[in-house]
Simulated scan of single mutants.
Amino acid sequence: MTRPFRFGLGKLEIPDSDDWLKSSRQVEDEGYDILLVPDHLGKTAPFPPLVATAAVTGLRVGTGVLNSGFYHPPLLARDAATTDRLTGGRLELGLGTGYAHPEFHALGLDPGTPKDRVDRLEATVAQLISIFSAPESVPAPVQKPMPLLIAGNGNRVLRLAAEYADIVGFIGMRYDPTSPGGLRLISTEEFAERVAYFEEVVGARSAEVERNLLIQAVVVTDDRDAAIRHIQQTQLPIPLEELERSPLLLIGSVEQIIGQVQEIRDRYGISYLTVMDAHQEAFRPVVEVLAGK
């Protein structure tokens, strides 16, 4: 089954009221389907801006994605259910393990090992599902079930998404404390293997789970080769061949990028793409052409 395209816009800005409402309306006017807020210290809190966006638009809203290690599951369930009610049942709850060690340390938390972080994510997902499905839970979300996005790269996270998620978030990145931001791009072959692994473990639930990808860069240019070389020299010092082939980097003319997005869906089954606000304007012509198709 080929799903129609769906496009998300992630916003990192710390809002004031008027600017946030104006920018939310712009996101909707440009054809995006969902506005998402990430979860990083030093940036905006995830839930309050989503309520404000839903009050002035018809957009769906989501967390993209919460660091499960920061939250006590019953309190997170309360906040998510309240947000779902205040947004009229438009919340999509995105969860991940978290990776930024300085943020854990700033909260007095031990990030632990990757296994520890996946353990926390797994426990959080189980508790949230239990709370949301209990008839006596108050507040109760409008949506039953609450749409859940689980994002990650490793086998255990992808198995968790295969069992419980409504949306699997492929990130195409791997934790690397030596890289700026703590993540590095994985190879195209490894990305394809990760998608294939998910297809293997999702089994009979395959048609139920939407596939999402967080795009790392959108560059509209008539000189694709020069743009890729510039990215290699200034941002990602990895072989040019990898940059040219990576599904995480959309580079070229608008027509070329439209073709790349269609190839992502054809090759990987990924129909839901998210870009961050730095790439909103560059990606807008692609959204105009492909939204809902």
Rank of each mutant, 00 (worst) to 15 (best):
R6K: 14
A140Y: 06
F70Y: 15
A291H: 11
G31E: 11
N212T: 01
Y268T: 00
A278M: 06
I167F: 12
G252T: 05
I258E: 08
V219F: 00
P49W: 03
V118Y: 09
V157L: 03
G252P: 08
Y272H: 10
F132R: 11
P180V: 12
A151H: 04
P46E: 06
R3Y: 04
A77M: 07
T178R: 13
A81W: 05
R159C: 14
H279C: 05
A45D: 12
I251M: 12
L273H: 04
P237A: 11
Q26W: 08
P285M: 07
Q235R: 08
R78W: 12
V289P: 00
K144V: 12
G96S: 09
L160D: 10
L148F: 12
D116E: 10
I238E: 05
V125C: 07
Q232S: 06
T234E: 04
P4I: 07
P177C: 04
G252L: 05
T234Q: 03
P111E: 12
R117Y: 13
G42T: 05
T83P: 09
W20H: 15
N155M: 14
T63Y: 06
D16A: 12
G42E: 01
G8W: 10
V219A: 02
V286E: 02
Y272M: 09
T274S: 14
G10K: 01
L36F: 02
R245Y: 05
K43T: 08
N155T: 14
I167H: 08
L107H: 13
A217V: 02
V125W: 06
S17L: 13
Q232D: 01
S24E: 02
V286T: 04
M173Q: 04
V65E: 00
A123S: 15
L160C: 11
D79R: 11
G64C: 06
L236D: 00
I270F: 01
D116H: 15
V56L: 15
P49F: 02
G259L: 00
R159F: 08
I257C: 12
P180G: 14
G31P: 11
E92M: 10
G203M: 01
L76P: 06
R120W: 06
T53A: 15
D79A: 14
V51W: 03
L160A: 11
L109F: 15
S130C: 03
E136Q: 14
E244D: 10
A192N: 02
Q216D: 00
L109C: 15
T2N: 10
A278L: 09
T113C: 13
S23W: 04
